[in-house]
């Protein structure tokens, strides 16, 4: 009977599209990662087009593993991702607990809080690195300049003047250097993704068992112990999910790095791949395979967790 065919027919476009989308480019990446393939080579023109005769085995992987850039990018990727995760989870829990109880204007505060999440990443980066963090013209520069001129003015003041004359002139931090631009990226992504964490934790807090809380109050539990022994364990699962979903998103962070760090040496894996892809496709592909492996480590845990709730 058609009872099995129709469902299959309905699913097949989506499945086939995704299958092609996944297999073809990934297969090509895998293939390119095993051959010598560079876009510009005057010396060896045969390397400029993909061919099996340029087989290099694990050579590209060796090249990538021996490159300083790769290890820097891996390290930096992990540093950026972990910092963002740490900041968003802590901030997310604090803010979610703060605004979960009703207070005047709760709805508006929610709307204000969630807004950063919908800002497109390119705008986020341009906004932060220029209007806010620029050391001269951004708020960063203006604020430091303001403090300096205030201190300057107070130096001639009677009585306290001697005190302020001992103060140094403050230097605004520039967020365009290699390392500081990573901080800038962490800041802007944290700003964008904390709302996501808040939203998820709030959703989860609302499903917390109120009777359990009331029982705890009757048992004489303090606010802190209620949080520590009831709320925090209840949030365990959402925390894990926030961490894993963000890890997957942020491992492929691109627009922010591209806008903030272009040319200053700061890079993460996707950015490094982009750099390699300007010429050395073999290396770009090998790096890509490493990125896939890294993402899969997280994805396996996440998928397992999702799978458990799926068919309930």
């Amino acid at each position: 009977m058609s009872q099995r065919t129709l469902p299959r027919l309905l699913q097949s476009p989506a499945v086939l599209l995704l299958l092609v989308w996944m297999l073809v480019p990934l297969g090509m990446t895998l293939y390119f990662s095993f051959i010598r393939y560079v876009l510009n080579s005057l010396r060896r023109p045969e390397w400029t087009s993909p061919s099996l005769s340029n087989w290099r085995g694990l050579g590209n992987y060796e090249f990538v593993l021996n490159s300083k850039d790769f290890w820097f990018a891996v390290q930096n990727s992990i540093f950026i991702v972990c910092s963002i995760l740490f900041a968003t989870v802590i901030l997310g829990i604090l803010i979610a607990v703060l605004i979960n109880k009703t207070f005047p204007g709760q709805g508006i505060v929610r709307v204000l809080l969630i807004s950063p999440f919908f800002v497109m990443p390119a705008v986020n980066a341009v906004l932060w690195i220029n209007m806010i963090l620029d050391p001269v013209l951004g708020l960063n520069g203006l604020a430091v300049g303001g403090i300096n001129s205030l201190v300057e003015g107070l130096r001639d003041a009677p009585l306290v003047g001697w005190f302020f004359s001992m103060w140094p002139e403050f230097e605004p931090i520039s967020f365009r250097a290699t390392q500081t631009s990573a901080y800038a990226v962490i800041m802007m992504v944290t700003w964008q993704w904390t709302p996501f964490a808040v939203l998820i934790f709030m959703t989860s807090l609302q499903s917390e068992d109120q009777q359990q809380k009331e029982a705890a109050i009757l048992d004489g539990a303090s606010t802190w112990s209620q949080f520590r022994f009831l709320t925090l364990p209840h949030l365990g699962r959402p925390i894990a999910i926030v961490v894993m979903i963000q890890a997957i998103f942020h491992l492929s962070l691109y627009a922010e790095i591209e806008i903030v760090s272009r040319g200053n040496g700061n890079k993460n894996l996707p950015y490094l791949i982009g750099e390699f892809a300007n010429n050395n496709i073999g290396a770009a592909s090998a790096t890509g395979i490493f990125a896939v492996i890294l993402a899969n480590i997280v994805a396996i845990f996440l998928l397992r967790m999702i799978g458990k709730t799926l068919m309930e």
């Binding site: 699913q11 990934l26 990446t29 996707p270 791949i273 770009a284 890509g288 990125a291 999702i306 799926l310």
Partner: peptide
């Protein structure tokens, strides 16, 4: 199938950058 679909979402886009450009 559902899990597999999700897993495609989790592949880092950068990994297939060049093949996509090339194709």
């Amino acid at each position: 199938v559902l899990m597999w679909m999700l897993s495609t979402k989790m592949l880092p886009a950068a990994a297939v950058l060049y093949p996509m450009t090339f194709l």
